[in-house]
């Protein structure tokens, strides 16, 4: 397969473009997505290619954006709506959690909602408490919803295409840090020229190792990959498991890795209390306790709002350094 290097943003843009070319029922709307091409350029030039009927700037109305996506999906379209920051998904929580995720069930299976809500969280960009929240853990309480969070350009493209073709509502969470931070593993990477899809609900072993399993998702996959490189210099072989889909979660891949390494570190950007790491850890304790040779380590943001100052934010969030320290203690 011929490949080239694309950035995370370019890969997402290409996924949208390909799906819109393939299927007229795919439409894109949200704040700043049309004329401006998205505040982070993910929807760049879609308006030019597909016109104002399929690419629409909306009022600043998150409830109406998600609600309109529900209505359009009910009527057989495949809307891809953008909520500019994950923080703002809170405004539409009712639409997403109380309405969209339950509609197939409550209608007795009469309706399907093939919609995608794209959003991003900007932890790692010095954006302060209200533009950096990674709120996926709070949405684990909304069965019926799927939550996808890609960590590389390859996954971003393949997962977004699959999300658009999926018949259930998908919250597609991008990382704002991966849009811009060139030092990250997930900023740029190989993407095949040919079309491909990545199934939802499947984790990916990003790096194979025998000594410890590091489960990560989205931005922290880049931190985990950097940590694994540093650990290798110290003679520790870390296996990095990227969740890719947060709900439904691929516990099988996690457990298979733990059975091999017998040690688990979960590193992700939720605050620690009730984070995704808590779900991963409790599942491993419930189903693979006998394989663990050491207590599970959870690395998260501390349970407090994020600081804005860049140097402080670096201390606040999960980093390669924190992962290396945790693993070093764990394998002693």
């Amino acid at each position: 397969m011929a490949t080239r290097e694309l950035t995370y943003v370019e890969a997402l843009n290409e996924a949208l473009r390909e799906e819109m070319r393939r299927d007229d029922s795919v439409i894109v709307f949200g704040e700043e997505v049309a004329a401006a091409g998205g505040v982070y350029k993910v929807t760049k030039d879609l308006l030019k290619e597909f016109g104002p009927k399929r690419v629409l700037d909306t009022p600043i109305s998150e409830i109406a954006i998600v609600g309109a996506a529900i209505g359009a999906a009910l009527n057989g379209l495949r809307p891809v709506a953008e909520i500019m920051f994950f923080d703002f998904v809170g405004i539409a929580f009712d639409q997403l959690v109380t309405h969209a995720s339950k509609m197939r069930f409550m209608s007795g299976g009469q309706v399907k909602l093939p919609l995608v809500i794209r959003t991003q969280y900007s932890l790692g960009r010095s954006y302060g408490s209200q533009h950096t929240q990674f709120l996926a853990a709070s949405l684990l309480q909304a069965p019926g919803l799927k939550i996808v969070a890609p960590a590389t350009p390859y996954d971003a493209k393949g997962l977004l295409k699959s999300s658009i073709r999926d018949d259930d509502p998908v919250l597609f969470v991008e990382s704002g840090a991966l849009y811009v931070n060139r030092s990250y593993y997930g900023y740029r990477g190989p993407v095949p020229e040919e079309e491909y899809l990545i199934p939802l609900g499947k984790a990916d072993v990003k790096r194979v190792g025998d000594d410890v399993t590091i489960v990560a998702v989205s931005r922290t996959v880049s931190e985990a990959m950097a940590a694994a490189n540093q650990l290798e210099e110290k003679g520790v072989k870390a296996e990095v498991v990227d969740l890719r889909t947060i709900m439904p979660m691929d516990y099988e891949t996690i457990i298979n890795s733990v059975k091999k390494t017998n040690r688990l570190v979960v590193a992700e950007d939720s605050v620690k209390t009730g984070g995704i790491s808590a779900e991963v850890a409790s599942h491993v304790c419930e189903y693979a306790f006998e394989y663990l040779e050491a207590p599970i380590v959870r690395l998260n943001s501390p349970p407090m709002p994020a600081p804005q100052a860049s140097e402080l934010e670096k201390k606040y969030m999960v980093s390669a350094e924190k992962i290396v320290n945790a693993v070093t203690k764990l394998v002693k």
């Binding site: 009927k53 109406a64 309109a68």
Partner: peptide, 25 residues
């Protein structure tokens, strides 16, 4: 007849989205 929600007003945005998609089609 689209099955009703219980929380009031929750269905107004989806009714609008549905109407707009009729126009699109």
């Amino acid at each position: 007849i689209v099955p009703a929600p219980i929380p009031v007003a929750v269905h107004i945005p989806s009714a609008v989205g549905f109407a707009l998609s009729l126009k699109y089609k």
